[in-house]
């Protein structure tokens, strides 16, 4: 089984080396269903991220224009499809996601129990639990998702997630651009994919700034809620259909 870890990277010069090193160490230290490759997707960073990747000989692709997180992750999914990977794992480039929990999200997909397994920090409630306001937002989205498609997902905005071959191919075709995580859940569930969660522990980001500032968070909630509702209204659930 071939596993690809997709690391979206936008201005992560402070973190990217550590993220890759941690990943390499973590991969050696745990039992995984197959070989693990990684791919950094540089979303037209304005800092030295690309230079670091080139000098350190990391495997990376560089987008010619800035596409945002959705388009960046999708590039990784496209790469996974083109190169025949069985499982694609999305893992943030800011060091929030601890690669020691890679096995947690990969195994349910490898065993065929789930089509998408999301690493959730709210199952065991260990590690960095983020601010109260963010948790509130995440909970609202969780309830909204439950109402709209019946999916029970606690950590709706977690970008630490593994997808199997079919769902990766689906995401390579259709993936939201701006704040894609919650929308990816509803679009997968409505297309008949099984989505679930596994416990992981997350850290606070090591450096740099989050893509979602306090200023943008209200806009974020409105945009995501609206896009979820619109998505539900304009899409019919495919009964047991697997893409």
């Amino acid at each position: 089984m071939k596993i690809l870890v997709i690391i979206p990277c936008y201005n992560e010069e402070e973190n990217i080396e550590r993220v890759v090193e941690n990943l390499e160490t973590a991969v050696r230290g745990q039992e995984l269903p197959g070989e693990v490759d990684y791919l950094i997707v540089n979303d037209c960073s304005t800092d030295a991220s690309a230079k670091i990747c080139r000098e350190r000989g990391f495997r990376f692709v560089s987008q010619p224009v800035n596409l945002g997180i959705g388009g960046t992750v999708q590039t990784g999914y496209l790469y996974a499809v083109c190169n025949g990977y069985d499982i694609a794992v999305q893992m943030d480039g800011d060091g929030q996601h601890d690669p020691r929990y890679l096995a947690n999200v990969v195994w349910p997909v490898a065993r065929g129990e789930l089509d998408m397994c999301i690493g959730s920090r709210f199952i065991t409630r260990e590690g960095f639990q983020t601010s109260f306001m963010r948790r509130l937002g995440i909970n609202i989205l969780s309830i909204l998702l439950k109402i709209l498609c019946g999916a029970r997902v606690l950590d709706t905005t977690s970008g630490f997630r593994a997808t199997n071959r079919q769902l990766t191919a689906y995401f390579a075709q259709v993936y939201a651009q701006d704040y894609p995580e919650p929308e990816a859940i509803i679009s997968a569930v409505l297309s008949g994919f099984r989505v679930g969660e596994a416990p992981v522990v997350m850290a606070e980001r090591m450096g740099g700034t989050s893509s979602i500032s306090a200023f943008k968070s209200v806009f974020y909630m409105v945009k995501v809620s609206l896009s979820l509702i619109v998505f539900r209204l304009t899409n019919i659930r495919k009964k047991g259909a697997r893409a």
Binding site: R59, V61, S62, V65, L67, Y79, C82
Partner: peptide
Amino acid sequence: FSEKLKRLSQESALLEQ
């Protein structure tokens, strides 16, 4: 257009790699 542009950039990035 933005959808097309996205796909173009992605393909171009993969080709460059």
